[in-house]
Design a protein around this nucleic acid. Structure first.
Length: 854
RNA sequence: GCCCUCUUGGCGGAACUGGUAGACGCAACGGACUUAAAAUCCGUCGUUCGCGAGGACGUGCCGGUUCGAGUCCGGCAGAGGGCACCA
């Protein structure tokens, strides 16, 4: 018996699919459409098997839906702009484009090994001018429609390299190359006004019912709607006018003991002009870093400006105004009032600077005079005290009352704010889509004319020093003003790569469209029915794409508002890590397990086994797909990736695991190959009547169809795989005798082949051929379970006495509960367990369980 | 700091909306076949008591609700993820 030879079989079928253009998608209105998309890859170099899970998962869905009769679109492209290319250019003295396209070529070959059902005719890379020119066009349209703004924002600035750093390039507050302390610096930058759509993006989340709840919650929190009030405090020095703060707790206004403003607040900036100690305080705060985690975990610091704010309700009372590091200019109004008794952060601040702590909300049933706040702020509900007109109200009523009063006095209004900030898209880097704007000394900022697009990147940029190569390019930025014709300068910022990935799914609908999109194709294919990718994109990418799709709709490029009707976030593939005696990482293939010890291959050097981590180049715990395909075949790898771990969880790659999958492939092949010669002809008609054995195997077959169909539909690939194992185990035990048995076996083996096709498509084609199939299995419709065969006539119900399992009994399905009760009480095991005690009651859950309570 | 997730045998995991805990796979062990090995096949496989029939215990820890809790509620512990210029 010859073994299944994946190395020969797999390329053969891949060629057959390609020759027949099976995966070439066309608009076909006679079928329901299904658009399945995996988040497209960044071409970082080579793929490892860890990248494969995402694509294989999408491929299983695509092949399953195709068999179910859908017109499937399953494209692939490259998210090709980004920092790694520019870093590589600096380190390897090459061009980012050259590096990127070389990576794309390599990775495309590797992806093809996986046998994915992709329509490669739609492939594109976002770094290609034929893609980004459309992005520039849409940027200009968005600008005309008022979705674009230009304003100041902070960046991480490396004072030695004179360059802007990404958060990931800031390590412990220092630049990753220079080691210099990073500062925050303000730059005027381009923004998409996503915050204008905050409410829409928030409320539409409710309709995304095929998204994980977790992701919707993360987006909800990210948008961060809060209801509260703006309150105006008059200031002691009229030079600074008044101070407007935002609060979600206007009810605690009588407990205010200070106001705090952000370091970027106009009042702080104005005062800093004449106060050198404030200047140094601000500088100190600016070394903190821009991430929320850095700001939140930093020690709370305040600078007393000496200004006093007059309490809106208490005549003659004032509170000090501080500049504080924990107040963000980007959120609310960049100014707060502090009520230490009912906010932990305010309390910490008040204790540090010796400010009063006045409780104004007292838990119900406690005496307001005796209630005091120690080291923990009271944030719960209760009744107002020490609060004038609000005394005795609960928190919600007090909020309403105080807003009404503030509005009547002209000292404030009820308002809603969002945590969501506008999307800053400017990047001071070369390898991105140029922002099509021109700066003219006479006309200001002028858009590039549509007919002058694309603004392409110059090929002769230099990467030998840090900073933006576009900015220091000798000629590129010199251009005549489209408005007045005088010499002007191009914008040298490029777009955030998240812009590139915010509309690629729409471009895939017609990758050759002369404009940004082909509206007809977009209307047919969009939204993406099933989007698949990592949870790390739960917020930014997915929110930006939702915003961008809305903007595209308003600009006439799309007919939908939501890009992704269904979302699945899959787990990563992990692998053990290995280090040699010098502490250097080792590739798994450099490691050998010998006599129970782990050693460096071909030596006796001991190897330390490290933790199990996400496959990554840096830790070398990667396995190349070519090696797996050579040794076990791609189908074994695909099978392994779908088995064991549920798809949303991480899954560990192991040698024994892939061997187990290889055994499955061999076993399925052997079973089909050994049985085929004895089976009745393909498509032959079943003989009349079935023996018990044949009927049983038919029941198993149809129950497997029902179960696997449901599991695949619900993304439970691991369970679908387990079902297939059970099916194969049942078939192994089946010894056909009669003609009816042979016919039942043929039906079972054909079913097995079609059911496993989404996971192991090459093996399935080969089995199908052996079974006598005339067309490829890729063209074969999914089987339907026959309800007459999946129906259960008898059920086994468990029998408990006082909740403890004592026995079980087979009864007809949907038996009369009274009859079941009588049968149960008569059972010897039950009588013994009751031990003569009186029966209090009997609980019968139909078809499931009986519980006798004594 | 804030937000979120996870915790079931030696391991990955299964158990539909509270109803027989451990499907399926991996590893391990015993056996068959073989000169031998590989492959394959048969069997055992949560802990514990018992010759056996069978019993007791068991889903991170403590408590609660319920006839019944891996599942629901409260508290605690541990591990992991996200936090706006990585993609």
């Amino acid at each position: 018996m010859s073994r299944y030879n994946a190395r020969e079989v797999e390329p053969k079928w891949q060629t057959a699919w390609a020759d027949a253009q099976v995966f070439h998608a066309k608009i076909d209105r006679t079928k329901p459409k299904y658009y399945v998309l995996e988040m497209f890859p960044y071409p970082s170099g080579k793929i490892h098997i860890g990248h494969g899970r995402n694509y294989v998962m999408g491929d299983v869905v695509a092949r399953f839906k195709r068999a179910m009769g859908f017109n499937v679109l399953h494209p692939m492209g490259w998210d090709a702009f980004g920092m790694p290319a520019e870093n590589a250019a600096m380190e390897q003295k090459t061009h980012p484009g050259k590096w990127t396209y070389a990576n794309i070529a390599t990775m495309k070959e590797q992806l093809k090994i996986l046998g994915l059902s992709i329509d490669w005719s739609r492939e594109f890379a976002t770094c290609d001018p034929t893609y980004y020119k459309h992005q520039q066009k849409m940027f200009l349209d968005f600008e005309r429609l008022g979705f674009v703004a230009r304003k100041e924002a902070n960046v991480n600035w490396d004072p030695v390299d004179h360059t802007v750093l990404a958060n990931e390039q800031v390590i412990d507050g220092r630049g990753w190359r220079s080691g210099a302390l990073v500062e925050q610096r303000k730059l005027t930058q381009w923004f998409f006004k996503i915050s204008d759509m905050a409410e829409e993006l928030l409320s539409a989340l409710g309709d995304l019912d095929r998204w994980p709840d977790k992701v919707r919650l993360m987006q909800r929190n990210w948008i961060g709607k809060s209801e509260g009030a703006r309150v105006t405090f008059e200031l002691s020095d009229p030079k600074y006018g008044s101070l407007e703060v935002f609060t979600t707790r206007p009810d605690t206004l009588f407990g205010a003991s200070f106001c705090a403003i952000a370091v970027d607040h106009p009042i702080a900036q104005e005062m800093a002009k004449t106060d050198t100690s404030l200047v140094s305080f601000i500088a100190e705060c600016k070394r903190q870093g821009t991430t929320e985690a850095a700001i939140e975990t930093a020690e709370k610091m305040g600078f007393d400006t000496g200004l006093k704010a007059k309490h809106p309700f208490i005549a003659g009372a004032t509170v000090p105004v501080y500049v504080a590091n924990f107040v963000l200019m980007e959120y609310g109004l960049g100014a707060i009032f502090g009520c230490p008794a009912h906010d932990q952060r305010d309390l910490d601040f008040a204790r540090k600077y010796g400010l009063p702590v006045i409780p104004v909300v007292v838990p119900k049933g406690q005496d307001p005079k005796a209630f005091a706040v120690g080291t923990e702020a009271y944030i719960g509900d209760g009744l107002l005290a020490n609060s004038g007109f609000m005394d005795g109200m609960n928190v919600d009523d007090a909020k309403r009352a105080v807003i009404k009063k503030l509005e009547a006095m002209g000292a404030g209004t009820g308002t809603i704010t969002y945590r969501l900030r506008d999307w800053g898209v400017s990047r001071q880097r070369y390898w991105g889509c140029p922002i099509p704007m021109i700066h003219c000394d006479h006309c200001g900022v002028v858009p590039v004319r549509d007919e002058d697009l694309p603004v392409t990147l110059p090929d002769d940029a230099t990467f030998d020093q840090p900073g933006n190569p576009l900015d220091r390019h000798p000629t590129w930025k010199n251009v005549d003003c489209p408005s007045c014709g005088k010499p002007a300068r191009r914008e040298t910022d490029t777009m955030d790569t998240f812009v590139d990935s915010s509309w690629y799914f729409a471009r895939f609908c017609d990758a050759q469209a002369p404009g940004p999109t082909n509206k007809e194709a977009v209307d047919y294919w969009m939204p993406v029915d099933q989007y698949i990718g990592g949870i790390e994109h739960a917020i930014l990418h997915l929110l930006y794409a939702r915003f961008f799709t809305r903007a595209m709709r308003k600009a006439g490029y799309a007919g939908v508002s939501e890009p992704f009707a269904g979302l699945f976030t899959q787990g990563m593939i992990t692998h053990e890590t290995y280090k040699d005696q010098d502490g250097k990482w080792l590739f798994p293939e450099e490691v050998e397990k010998r006599d129970g010890a782990v050693v460096k291959r071909g030596s006796n050097q001991a190897v330390t086994i490290g933790s199990i981590e996400k496959m990554s180049k840096s830790k070398k715990n990667v396995v190349p797909p070519e090696a797996v395909a050579d040794t076990y075949g791609v189908d074994a790898a695909r099978w392994f990736m779908m088995s064991d771990s549920p798809p949303e969880r991480d899954s560990e790659w192991s040698e024994s695991g892939i061997e187990g999958s290889w055994r499955y492939v061999q076993r399925a092949w052997r079973m089909v190959n050994e049985s085929a010669p004895h089976l009745p002809g393909f498509g032959s008609v079943a003989p009349d009547g079935f023996g018990h054995e044949a009927l049983a195997i038919r029941q198993v077959t149809h129950r497997t169809i029902a179960a696997v169909t449901e599991d695949l539909d619900r993304f439970r690939f691991n369970k679908a795989v387990a079902r297939m194992y059970e099916f194969v185990n049942a078939l192994s035990d089946f010894k056909p005798v009669s003609e009816a048995d042979q016919w039942a076996l043929r039906e079972a083996l054909e079913t097995l082949t079609v059911l496993m096709n989404p996971m192991v498509p090459h093996l399935a084609e080969e089995c199908w051929q052996v079974l006598g199939g005339e067309t490829m299995v890729v063209h074969t419709p999914w089987p339907k379970a026959d309800p007459a065969l999946t129906r259960q006539d008898t059920v086994t119900i468990a029998i408990q006495v006082n909740g403890k399992r004592r026995d079980e009994i087979d009864v007809a399905k949907d038996s009369d509960p009274k009859a079941v009760e009588a049968a149960v009480l008569a059972m010897e095991s039950v009588v013994k367990a009751i031990d003569g005690k009186p029966v209090k009651k009997v609980i019968i859950v139909p078809n499931r369980i009986a519980n006798v309570v004594v």
